[in-house]
């Protein structure tokens, strides 16, 4: 009987193994379930109001009817101006930290600051935005003030994702360049950046979808309750989708049930579209990679 049959202990181990496997699979399913439920729920509830008219007209009847056009345009403004601010600063800072800075106490303090900045609650950013941009710099409640607030909020994420993308470029490429007498900047420009681009863009696009959904930071700094005109410049106030959703769900009486769900559907739609775009981007750029 000195064969290779399973012993009692082996059989017990196998049972545990199967159990654990199923348990973890169950947890994984629980994780993705809400995503689908939310999506299906929103489509069912919000689809009836979805139309060209809904997307391209302004709200009417005390926001109980009509469309969301000013809010849609306002969100685009807010996100665009925020990126205009956070992307150049964030990318430059990440390049400095990853390619130039040596590991010393200063860079460690900066890293710590970035991590902490990422953890600051958005409502705190909002208060900071009011104090700094609305009042101190005198931008008033405006797209500029709101976008700068959003920009500061997204900065740490842009830095971290850019830095990760840069560090994914193999060290051997840099060494090869340096050894041929290329300067750091030449190395970055010709070799490191082109190969980190897909990662950097992915990070930025994911930030777009997050920024589009933020409510608290824009509430006091630039987003208006009801303003049925399109903004003409960065010093105007504007409506925004996220705040509009909050307003018609909680602040306005007699809103038909489908209306907020329609707004939510558009918001989710933007997020999903942005995420798909970032995946497509990454795929295309990765295929062009030479390694």
């Amino acid at each position: 009987m000195a064969g290779f049959e399973a012993s009692a202990l082996n059989r017990r181990d196998q049972k545990v193994e199967r159990l654990i496997r199923w348990l973890f699979l169950l947890m994984t399913l629980l994780l993705i379930l809400p995503v689908f439920v939310i999506l299906i729920f929103l489509v069912i509830k919000g689809w009836p109001v979805m139309s060209m008219e809904f997307l391209f007209t302004e709200p009417s009847n005390g926001m109980t009817a009509g469309g969301i056009f000013p809010a849609l345009v306002g969100t685009v403004w807010l996100v665009a101006v925020a990126l205009l601010f956070s992307v150049p600063i964030g990318v430059a800072a990440a390049i400095y930290l990853s390619e130039y800075a040596s590991d010393n106490w200063l860079t460690r303090v900066i890293n710590l600051a970035i991590i902490n900045l990422a953890g600051v609650p958005s409502i705190v950013h909002a208060l900071f935005g009011v104090g700094a941009f609305v009042l101190f710099f005198g931008f008033g409640t405006s797209i500029l003030a709101a976008s700068l607030t959003l920009g500061i909020m997204t900065l740490p994420v842009v830095i971290v994702s850019t830095r990760e993308a840069l560090q994914a470029v193999p060290m051997a490429f840099r060494e090869a360049c340096w050894n041929m007498g290329a300067t750091r900047w030449q190395t970055i420009r010709h070799v490191v950046l082109p190969n980190a681009l897909s990662g950097i863009l992915t990070g930025i696009i994911l930030e777009v979808s997050r920024t589009a959904g933020e409510t608290a930071p824009i509430m006091f700094t630039g987003a208006a309750f009801f303003l049925p005109f399109l903004p003409q410049g960065v010093f105007d106030e504007t409506m925004a989708l996220s705040l509009h959703l909050f307003v018609i769900s909680t602040q306005v009486p007699n809103v038909p049930e489908a209306l907020p769900y329609g707004v939510a559907l558009v918001l989710i739609g933007i997020v999903l579209a942005m995420n798909s775009l970032s995946i497509a981007f990454r795929t295309v750029l990765r295929r062009r990679k030479k390694w």
């Binding site: 051997a172 490429f173 060494e175 050894n179 070799v191 082109p194």
Partner: peptide
């Protein structure tokens, strides 16, 4: 000029 242990062509043509 230097040649390394692992060939390290740049990610270029």
């Amino acid at each position: 000029g230097m040649v390394f242990q692992r060939p390290n062509p740049l990610p270029l043509s």
